[in-house]
Simulated scan of single mutants.
Amino acid sequence: MNIVLTGSLGNIGKPLTQKLVKKGHSVTVISSKTERQKDIAALGAKAAIGKMEDVDFLSKAFQGADVVYVMATLGNQSFFDPNIDIVEDMTQLGKNYKTAIERAGVKKVIELSAIGADKDSGNGNLIFHYNIENILKQLPTDVSIKVMRPSGFYTNLLRSVQSVKDKGVIISNYGGNQKEPWVSPMDIASAIVEEMESTFEGRTVRYIASDEISPNEIADALGNAIGKPELKWQAITDKQMLDGMLSMGMNPQAAKGLVEMQTAQGDGTLYEDYNQNKPTMGKVKLADFAKEFAKVYNN
């Protein structure tokens, strides 16, 4: 198949590209960075370099695709840019995707959304995934869409490396022994490949998770992996968390959104629809990620 991927070569994009090329598909990877061109070519894929804000570029890149994979995600720098409206910018990207899909005549779409995207409130920054899902629903009915809703990424825990080094704790505004789903980007890539190679019909939603584990279990596993078995997951108040992020220079909208999202993780409301539609767990477990965490920590 001729497959077009957005998202460049990130945590999901790189393994997704590798898996699809290995299976013999013709893969085009869209990136905004010219320097990515050689890395994309090295994987056996074609590069399409341009801006996501450029609908004409996207329409041309999508032309002739059997399947298009669209995603909207925030780079770490976005969290610290005070001049952007994260929700509005990501929602606009969804509108750009919709227009480009229509112009290019694409009939099969896979969208990377997120857990919590079933909710129109109470999900923090994840609201933009809700917005994009609903924008793409406005496509003509002959366009089949597979929505992928992964749970929280293991790799997000790497943001805690510095607090573990400096304070000996993982800090959040929730904690305890309540299990919640986490996922590896490798398992997300595998699920996307599986969906690309299976029948498209209508509009479907698939949750993706690798393991269900509690904050305390995460602290135990990561602590043992780095030789600090005493490591704890420390819950602080919403205000303490918000104040801490703002003092670091985080975009206020992003900071408030993270607090709201993690509150919903803690009280379980983020997982209500997931719990009604639980997926088969992926292959990458917490113990596997703990090794990755230890490598980053020790570097």
Rank of each mutant, 00 (worst) to 15 (best):
N2D: 14
L9Q: 09
P15F: 03
V21F: 05
K22E: 11
H25A: 14
E35R: 12
G44K: 07
I49L: 06
G50I: 01
K51I: 01
F57P: 02
S59P: 00
F62I: 06
Y69I: 06
V70W: 00
V70D: 00
D81T: 12
E88S: 13
Q92H: 11
Y97I: 10
I101S: 03
R103M: 02
R103H: 01
I127K: 10
Y130P: 07
N131Y: 03
I132Q: 00
Q138Y: 02
S144A: 15
I145R: 03
P150Q: 02
G152E: 09
L158Y: 05
S160W: 00
G176R: 05
G176C: 08
G176D: 07
Q178C: 12
K179Q: 09
V183R: 01
F200M: 09
E212Y: 07
P215T: 00
N216A: 07
I218G: 04
L222I: 06
N224L: 00
I226P: 00
K232F: 00
A235F: 02
I236F: 01
L242F: 03
M245P: 07
L246K: 11
L258P: 06
L258S: 06
T263R: 14
D267S: 15
G268W: 04
L270R: 05
Q276L: 14
T280V: 15
T280G: 09
K283S: 09
L286G: 02
D288E: 05
D288T: 04
